[in-house]
Amino acid sequence: MKQKIGLNQKRNLFGWVFLAPAVILIVVMSFVPAINAFITSFKTGNGADLHFAGLTNYLRIFKDAVFIQSVKNCFFYLIIQVPVMLVLALILASMLNNRKLRFKGIMRTCIFLPCATSLVAYSIIFRSLFAADGFVNLVATKLHILSEPYNFLAHPTSAKIVIIIALVWRWTGYNMVFYLAGLQNIEYSVYEAAKIDGASPLQTFFKITVPLLKPTILITAIMSTNGTLQLFDESVNLTNGGPSNQSITMSHYIYNQAFQGVPKFGYTSAMSFVILFLVAILALVQMKVGDKRD
């Protein structure tokens, strides 16, 4: 009896030894900074001279016109870009899942490739594509779609749309891979049966593919929402938040407040926790809506 407990303990010990490196790294690299940031978010002051001030920072956020603007921008991106991207990814995935299609491997790679590019590099390329004397303007004027070059990045709406186009280009392939993986779990015989029963491709898509892919759609929706709310590189490198903060994202504004002007680490930490809160709520809503299993 005594020896048996010893063996169990020994096993547990081994388990913990294997877990320990990862646990320690996660605690030290993620949890400790997060808790410190949470404490900092209750402090106020400039630079290193910080002192506790209760909820001042959190109350301040609601009076910050630029932060509110950045929240609006992020939700604009979210509401337009995430559905467009996920629908596109779903369509591409079900097209590429066709067994009769040739050169599938190459096409999959091509569609996935954008998400292997560096965030900064692709943002800069999109910036030069959409510059006043950039490629898009050149083509549009040569084809007489535009009478004179349009400075896309100097107008609020077009700047936001350019960011959305860039995001769709960068992330559609990434989500498509999730769907392709999900589609492998759907028996091909189901599709064959549907075909025999006379279902059109559209009916197959809505009645079979979408319902069976629901868990995958849910996880991609949560990940995309999360990613869009934390959008940073595109805002910094593509539009630099401009014109006049009309395309700035929350993370970009936080970065500006922390590192560009006089550093306000307490206030910026508080804003970061507001983002965390928003992401958590949205994920919760999506899980409640998307998960119909009892």
Binding site: A154, G242, P243, S244, N245, N256, Q260, G261, V262
Partner: peptide, 12 residues
């Protein structure tokens, strides 16, 4: 820097 950013928005 804060003044510069704010005035840049005015100019835009």
């Amino acid at each position: 820097t804060e003044a510069n950013t704010a005035l840049a928005n005015v100019a835009t």
